[in-house]
Every structure is written in structure tokens, then in C-alpha cells.
């Protein structure tokens, strides 16, 4: 990467459109890949992606490098937008008396097997122990809090917390081997 993302964000904060274009080129595929795994339709993912970069443009000056990596900040903007979309879709669906669990189950299982590019990481996720994979899917791709996951799975909150830690350590090991 020729220019550090932090510097690009700083330039975006000053109103530099070229810096935004560079950030887009560098990170939009990774962000799009995450969002595609979260929402139901490609059009929704595209909408979320566009919305995300407009928000990055507007809020670049509020990015605080002391609080995390630029990618984390950006992808979480996208994930929040996607989660809001999922929640409103769930509400609409429940209004049609279709159980929310249907949808959650579908995301949890099918979406990880979506035939997308970057199948290698999909393989990394599928290599995780099932309880770790389920946890990351619920936390990262479905946006559930630790308490919500504890309630949904009937596990104690402490178990969810320690399992989150173990899941990430397993993921990190798998990614290290993967490189």
C-alpha cells in the first residue's frame, strides 16, 4: 500500500476527494465482502457500501487512531449499517409472522457457504470449531452483543466471553498458517 490508511483518512478529513477515492480502492472490496455476508441481497450490500463511504467522508475527522485501526473503524460503520438493515428486515418479516430465527439460521449456515471470491477465508471460517464459528457469525456478521448471544444460546455470559477470546485465537492461528 503506497500511502498509509491513517494518512488517507487525515486527508479525507480535510476534504480531499482523491484521498477518499484511494481509500475506496484499497478497502471497498474487503468491506463489500463483509457486507455481502451480512445482508440478503446484492443491491442492499451495494447501498450499504455507498452509504459507508459517504459516512467515512463526513466523519473522517472523528476517527481516533488511539481507538483502533482505520479498517476497523470503516468496516464497523459498514457493519452497523448492515445490522440496522438486518434488524429492520427482521421486524418487517416478523410483521408477516415469519419467525426471525428462520432468517438467522439462514445467515448462519448458508451465507458462509456463498460462492464468493475469496473462498480461502471462507475455508478459514469453516475450519474453526463449530462453536467458535457460530460465535463469530453471530457477533461479527449478525451483530449480536455478548449478552444477546448468551440469551440466544442459553450459555452463561462468562462462557460467551471466554469463548469469544478462544474463537479469535483460533482464527488468528488459522490465518497465520494461511499466510
Amino acid at each position: 500500500m503506497p500511502v498509509e490508511p491513517i494518512q488517507l483518512l487525515e486527508r479525507v478529513a480535510t476534504g480531499d476527494e482523491a484521498a477518499l477515492a484511494a481509500l475506496y480502492d484499497a478497502f471497498s472490496p474487503a468491506i463489500y465482502g463483509v457486507v455481502l455476508r451480512m445482508v440478503e441481497k446484492e443491491e442492499q450490500a451495494q447501498e450499504v457500501l455507498q452509504d459507508t463511504f459517504v459516512k467515512i467522508w463526513r466523519n473522517a475527522r472523528s476517527y481516533d487512531s488511539g481507538k483502533g485501526r482505520p479498517f476497523t473503524w470503516m468496516v464497523n460503520i459498514a457493519r452497523n449499517a448492515a445490522i440496522d438493515l438486518l434488524r429492520s428486515a427482521d421486524v418487517k418479516r416478523s410483521e408477516m409472522i415469519r419467525p426471525i430465527e428462520d432468517h438467522v439460521y439462514r445467515i448462519g449456515c448458508d451465507d458462509l457457504n456463498m460462492d464468493l471470491e475469496g473462498a480461502d477465508v471462507r475455508n478459514v471460517l469453516t475450519k474453526l470449531r463449530p462453536e467458535h464459528r457460530d460465535l463469530i457469525v453471530q457477533a461479527y456478521y449478525q451483530g449480536y452483543s455478548q449478552q444477546e448471544i448468551a440469551d440466544r444460546t442459553g450459555s452463561p455470559l462468562g462462557t460467551v466471553k471466554s469463548r469469544t477470546r478462544a474463537a479469535l485465537q483460533e482464527l488468528r492461528t488459522l490465518l497465520k498458517d494461511h499466510r
Partner: peptide, 25 residues
């Protein structure tokens, strides 16, 4: 930890349709 998520996302990246970039800009 953040890097792990980032690496995962990078490896699972999907190129969005080119029109999106133009719309953003």
C-alpha cells in the same frame, strides 16, 4: 485482534460493481 478481522476481510474481499465508486464520489 483487529488485524485478524482485517486479514479475514481482505482475503474474503469481493470487488463491488464499478458504478458504486462513481456514485460515492
Amino acid at each position: 485482534i483487529e488485524e485478524a478481522f482485517e486479514l479475514q476481510a481482505m482475503a474474503a474481499a469481493v470487488a463491488p460493481p464499478p458504478a458504486i465508486k462513481a456514485q460515492v464520489l
